[in-house]
Design a protein around this nucleic acid. Structure first.
Lengths: 191, 191
DNA sequence: CTTGAATACCTAGCGGTGCTAGATTTCGGC
DNA sequence: GCCGAAATCTAGCACCGCTAGGTATTCAAG
């Protein structure tokens, strides 16, 4: 039954096409522009086809977010392992996180701002997400000292997530990006 | 012409009624439930009346947010001045900030999460907002040491904003609330 | 090669949204 | 009591997410 296989392959391709198109549309014009009609038109199918792949619009956004988690984990891994010195590695990873958020605001929005009932912090969390948090833990581990690593990670993540979101909302002075990060790292370093 | 005055008074009352009703509806059922139709029905006027007070739905949300800034500033002021010791005062203010966000999630959402093009950080920012940031500066000032107070404030705010938003999105472990705050304050204290 | 059933897909429509043009009612001043 | 202006409403637009039901298309069996 090679035909069946071909069908399934095509279906998987279309599945990916929908996710990628939704993401492009969102990054180009924001999530408000991602309507089921426009998305269907972009992938050159009718609206109901979307619903044969996803339970609804939220599920599509969720799929985009999960793709994003995978990318972020990769970006963090690369940034961290680019530096030998633990402190420089942490700085590099944190900066990569901010770059990620600022270069793909719509994607970051889907991943961390929208209410998408993606399980966080539990074992049911998507592996891509767990990998990303794992990178953060690994980057912090050398500077943790005798402090609780999980709490430390939550605090550090909160801070850079705060940087990212407040920057995206134009609520922080853009020119102080480096200064804020310097200060944050300094705080975490003093042991 | 006392009649004109009465009219303006009534109009101002209705203005406030719309804002308060929108806020109640949002806090009770979330912003998705705040539609112009439901809001109009709740204030017992037709939809177009809303548009004689506000440019659109966003303007209503913005008005709610600005009301929220005022309240937050008040809450912070009270919390800060309740303690003598500067460190305790800072802790008290930071905890009050988190309580505010957790008790009024929809309001916090309107104030800091939604894209509402409220000017931040500039002199055109609403005075309520400037007052709130002023409270934060005042709370941090005693522990700033020789660090730049503005940068320090942005970092501190980012961290507690991160706490608040990640908590609201169920992305942090709820039981570690105190531990995270302890750690954060410890970081800022070491001088 | 034809046929019947299953599959894939689309058209059309439901009840909702934010917003507005134009008709209608209300009301103070004469 | 009537007029004109101001206040307010009705009705409608174009869009939204989502789905029922009908129409093609495809494939396996005869």
């Amino acid at each position: 039954m090679a035909i069946r296989e071909r069908r399934e392959r095509e279906r998987a391709q279309r599945h990916k096409l929908i996710i990628d198109t939704a993401r492009e549309l969102a990054e180009r014009e924001g999530w408000d522009a991602v309507t089921t009609r426009r998305l269907a038109e972009s992938v050159e199918y009718s609206q109901p086809v979307l619903y044969s792949h996803f339970a609804g619009k939220d599920a599509i956004v969720r799929a985009v977010a999960i793709e994003g988690f995978g990318e972020l984990a990769k970006v963090l891994k690369e940034a961290r392992s680019a530096r030998e010195d633990p402190i420089e590695a942490l700085r590099s990873a944190a900066m990569a996180y901010l770059d990620f958020a600022e270069k793909r605001p719509a994607l970051y929005d889907a991943m961390f701002l929208r209410q998408l009932d993606i399980p966080f912090g539990t074992s049911e969390a998507p592996p891509e997400l767990r990998a990303g948090f794992g990178e953060l833990l690994a980057a912090l581990e050398p500077v943790a000292g005798e402090r609780d690593i999980d709490t430390l990670a939550e605090v550090f993540w909160s801070a850079i997530h705060g940087f990212a979101t407040l920057m995206l909302g134009a609520r922080l002075r853009p020119d102080l990006r480096e200064a804020r990060m310097d200060l944050l790292l300094e705080l975490f370093m003093r042991e």
